[in-house]
């Protein structure tokens, strides 16, 4: 017993992994971490600036909530509506478009609702609803969830309003929802990056892509230190600036390869996107 306690005590007081120098905390959507993009980008940023970036990977809704409490310094999200609300509420003084990719409609290869033949996402969703084939929603206030709800709204089908046997919410991340979908032969909307890096797709396939409604832009938000005094705005600004710099944009476009990137850099010259300009009020 004393020996055991001694051992545990030793473990307890052993030094923490060194975190020398400056660091900032980034809340990023799970797709950017799970696809490996951040592992590709952040070491480059750190070697350029010496700033360590600690990543909390959560859905866009949760990421913005962390920002609202001032617990993170930069947010990488893909829910434009929610991002604009965040800006308008003054939690961030700056938002930049960073990159984009797209959502894809995924379902079992057998495609019982025949969505493959449909011209666009609106028609595909109507076909699923008509056939009452299982559709899995993230249901977690993530960017993907928000995009999915926009598509249903465009299709004129009030999924949220009524409980439907074929429409189910997992309340989980993209990976977990893909697992469930592959087990239940369900349709679902997923971001392309997570889908491509997902390792156990089973019989799931991409059934529809390319609709303009499925455009998926990612924005970087700099949490305002005027609103959250302990937010590291100066460090965060360096990250946001780097992400939209030629070096950062080139790095994004080169992952995993320049021929077939998972995320497309925002090639437009980086004009400020905020209603109030670069400087927080």
């Amino acid at each position: 017993m004393p020996a055991l306690l001694g051992l545990l005590l030793l473990l307890a007081v052993s030094p923490a992994p060194a975190s020398a120098g400056d660091f900032l905390t980034l809340a990023a959507t799970t797709s950017t971490r799970d696809s490996g993009l951040l592992d590709h980008l952040l070491p480059r940023f750190q070697s350029r600036t010496g700033i360590e970036v600690r990543v909390i990977a959560v859905g866009s809704g949760r990421a913005l909530e962390l920002g609202r409490r001032g617990d993170v310094d930069v947010i990488l999200a893909h829910d434009r509506t929610a991002e604009d609300r965040f800006l308008a509420a003054g939690h961030a003084g700056l938002r930049r478009d960073v990159m984009w990719n797209d959502f894809v409609l995924i379902g079992p290869a057998s495609d019982p609702a025949r969505v493959r033949d449909r011209p666009g996402i609106v028609e595909a969703l109507r076909a699923i609803a008509e056939a009452e084939r299982p559709f899995l929603s993230r249901g977690d206030a993530s960017g993907t969830h928000a995009a999915e709800l926009r598509c249903w709204a465009a299709a004129g089908i009030p999924v949220a309003a009524s409980a439907r046997g074929w429409y189910r919410e997992t309340g989980s991340g993209q990976g977990a929802t893909l697992h469930v979908a592959s087990q239940l032969d369900s349709y679902l909307l997923a971001d392309r990056a997570t889908w491509r890096s997902f390792r156990s797709p089973g019989t799931l396939r991409i059934l529809l892509e390319g609709d303009p409604l499925l455009h998926n832009p990612y924005g970087a938000l700099l949490v305002s230190s005027a609103r959250h005094p302990r937010a590291k705005e100066a460090l965060g600004r360096q990250l946001v600036d780097w992400l939209v710099s030629p070096e950062g944009q080139a790095a994004i476009g080169a992952f995993p390869s320049t021929d077939d990137p998972l995320f497309h850099p925002n090639v437009r010259p980086s004009a400020p996107q905020t209603p109030s300009g670069d400087d927080p009020a």
Binding site: P17, D34, I56, A57, H179, S197, F198
Partner: peptide, 21 residues
Amino acid sequence: GNIAHLTRVMTTAIVLETNRG
């Protein structure tokens, strides 16, 4: 927060890899 090299432990790593499929 399951931050790599800082706060990632066995269980959070398992959750992460499950989500990655």
